[in-house]
Design a protein around this nucleic acid. Structure first.
Lengths: 363, 363
DNA sequence: CTGAAAGCGCTTACAG
DNA sequence: CTGAAAGCGCTTACAG
């Protein structure tokens, strides 16, 4: 008969049974065990695990069955060690809003579900002198498979360049495209700003103030520009002194909210570039003994939990943070494969109307 | 002269220089490189790295110098692989409050700073059938060095037992001691509840309602009991119908807040077992056209950001989430070492008085 | 106090 | 389509 292929010789069911019979202490099987039981080399098992095409179909099927039956799971640490990179995905961020951070984390984990990848978090301070160096060390030491960058670190070209230099895959989440398409999740904040303006304008408002976000954040520019675009559609012009400079913090919203009340003539509505600042404006109104929406209609941006905790509940533009995280993780996993077609990498903000805005009473 | 010890033979400065001269492509040094340059075995370098006492002082000093000069950093992946465990710390949690989660994460990273450890996050659902199995798989697959458990998963005995079984170090964060001292960070929520009661009682309130937290959470019991203890000190008794059952969500606060207004006689003050519910009560007041603290004084618990975003700003009991995370990480790192004395593993909540409470007007 | 050997569980060339 | 050898960068016994 001569040589017969091993897959024909091997009874994979029996092999699985023998594993359990000869393993009283419940040791977890290794690739070597699978190979021995299947009567093949470790390399062949490795090929099956890594979906290499060059394996006989019958062999592949039998090995997969055996793997399932004895509950073999390749050790990600050993695999990573041999691959010279880990099965870890990093999230590098400096956004201080807990709701954003947690939701993007959840989204990334959604996108990683069913894989062997885990998520390592790396908050950082972009102002620090060692920011780039720290991030590089983080990535290199852990040999991260890739990283997700969220605003505003995602906007940092030095960081992106450093990551390219060390060959680390990355996905940048930002309000506009800043990089090759497969490296971006674009959130289109400009569209959200426009929706906010359309909403206020269609309620009859025309004296509308804007509290802008931190200048160094690209989203601040996008949200404001989009808002101005929307006003333009209604023929409304935004006077310079109706634009107040905030920095995305609640405190700046509180301060600019107070300033806003001194404007002459007073605005009947305001757009704050994020919910934190909108909450500050609302609090400034309370302090002044005024009320929204009666004395001022106000629109925020983000739709984090705060928006529904304050009173009146905030009309705002929803940022799908969790979805953003999921898309970023999916893009990252696909990044290595040239074959995988580019998945969706855009999200669109959506206006959520609540009680902080209302029709302007004709006076 | 016969045998001379190697450390006397080796010029470590020259060795460092030769590394840079012979490494034009900037390859990162390995332990083997260090050993070769120092004229010792890898094992000796390994001993230096792992602070093994059995190394000649001069040898140790020279090797440390060399390591610093050529910028050698042991590969955590390889080290972990040989050790059969990783340099990763996990955080397993089911608390849905983003501010708590993010702050504990930051705290854990504070505690890990300066080490080679990184943080892997693992949100989970305690209600899921596969909850324990998933957590075990997470820990085993990544060979985690240890995990931090926060409420309410920290209260799950099955989880703790599963972790002990697989030999995974863990630290439980909980309102009371549930385990050996070195495995616990105790937050003493009862003390916080007592402070809240003392505050309201000392303002002259005696008709005080309580919105309790989710029954299955130990903290709910502690906060409420502490509150009752505090009332007792002032001779105030909490009638059964003044205790409303919430579940820690904003929505339950909103619903129980509405119920609370129907109580007869109406309470003049209320204690909500967390800020989310307190925010709900405040919103219920707004909906009913009433105001805090004029119509009802209200105290929350946690002092997350929400507390200062709502109006009036909430008098509440501060939970030091970031500090809790730091202590947990420090305890975890010390857990392996029998020698390391037990560090601080208690935190005490602190009352923060803001505008949601005020003295009862004598009527 | 120090070292040579073997090994952790995988993968990458290289053969065939 | 499959395998034997060497190796990833460390550590653990075991010697001496």
């Amino acid at each position: 008969m001569g040589r017969r292929s091993r897959k024909a010789d091997t009874d994979f069911k029996a092999a699985a049974r023998s594993w359990f019979e000869n393993n009283p202490d419940g040791r977890k099987p290794t690739m070597g065990d699978v190979a021995r039981l299947a009567g093949v080399s470790k390399k062949t098992v490795s090929r099956v695990i890594n979906d290499s095409p060059q394996v006989n179909d019958a062999t592949r099927a039998g090995i997969k069955e055996l793997i399932r039956d004895i509950g073999y799971r390749p050790d990600p640490q050993a695999r990573g060690f041999a691959f010279r990179r880990s099965y870890l995905v990093g999230m590098i961020y400096d956004n201080p809003t807990p709701q954003y951070v947690v939701n993007v984390q959840l989204g990334i984990l959604d996108g990683l579900k069913g894989t062997d990848f885990e998520l390592v978090v790396h908050p950082c301070n972009r102002q620090s002198d060692t920011f780039i160096e720290d991030a590089r060390k983080f990535v290199e030491m852990q040999k991260l498979y890739g990283v997700v960058l969220t605003p505003s670190v995602s906007e940092d070209e030095r960081l992106a360049e450093a990551l390219r230099e060390i060959g680390c895959a990355y996905i940048r989440v930002a309000s506009v495209a800043l990089d090759m398409e497969r490296r971006m999740i674009v959130t289109n904040d400009r569209v959200g700003g426009r929706e906010a303006a359309r909403h206020l304008a269609s309620l009859g408002h025309s004296r509308i103030a804007v509290i802008a976000g931190r200048r160094s954040f690209r989203s601040a520019h996008e949200r404001r520009s989009g808002f101005e675009d929307g006003l333009m559609e209604f023929g409304i012009r935004l006077p310079m002194d109706y634009v107040l400079q905030g920095d995305y913090t609640f405190e700046s919203g509180l301060a600019r909210g107070a300033d806003l009340l001194d404007l002459d003539p007073p605005p009947t509505a305001a757009f704050a570039a994020n919910d934190e600042m909108a909450a500050g404006v609302l609090q400034a109104l309370h302090v002044a003994g005024l009320k929204a929406p009666e004395d001022l209609s106000i629109v925020g941006f983000d739709d984090f939990e705060t928006a529904t905790r304050i009173w009146p509940r905030l009309t705002t533009v929803h940022t799908p943070a969790r979805k953003i995280g999921r898309l970023a993780a999916q893009s990252l996993l696909a990044f290595g494969d040239e074959d995988v077609p580019l998945g969706p990498n855009q999200t669109v903000p959506e206006l959520i109307v609540r009680e902080s805005t209302r029709e302007l009473e004709s006076s």
